[in-house]
Amino acid sequence: MACQEYQELISDYIDGTLELGEEARIERHLADCDGCRAVRDDLLQIVHFSRQLPLHTPSSEVWTQLQTKIAAERPTHFGSRVAAWVSRLKNLELNLSVPQLAASAAALLIIFSVALIISRQSAETPSASSLAGRSGTAGMNLLSNAEDQEIEEKIERLRESVEQRRVTWSPELQVAYDRSIRQVDQCLATCRQQLSGDPSDQVSKDLMRDAYLEKQRLLEGFTKF
């Protein structure tokens, strides 16, 4: 491939959307071609600085104007709403035969039934996140020996330290911390839930211990900022 062809792929390469083989081929070429490396560096700079640009939130005035326009275009009566809906359906130009219509109705029925079953199950089973929400340090009693208690105490101390420091962080870092700690808490909650069903489950015990160590690593990492 000529340099020009490589350069056309560099943007995808930076985005990480290339096939593995292509990615490796570009890497090899970049290692030897100063010109293409310069193009890549330029693109990297563009990507980097575009990430720094702030997100613009429309002003309340813009929202009000939008709402007014939507309200003006929205049909108010039920009859006109149905007419608008039918009109939109007509625009879709669906040409379905009777068997096709029957199959579509059956598919809709199946989807509805599955959704109903799933929603009932999720209503009966507490979600991991709800368990994580009430986890905090509670439930740690599943780990009982002295070493585990030491980990718990260390985690609590680290958490206090992090909470004091986080006010100085950028919003991006705060969000990353919150997401990560929530994820670890969610894993702990899942382990706890599985252990409560089977207290002899050694894999869940080991995973729970490792999750506590991960939480400790996480907190230690963030106390440095």
């Binding site: 020009q4 193009v39 700079q45 600085f49």
Partner: peptide
Amino acid sequence: MSKSRQGFGDACRAATAALSVAA
């Protein structure tokens, strides 16, 4: 460097400068 590559590189540099100023 070929003409088209040079053009591409120049465009990148111009865009970089514009974005840097915006940032």
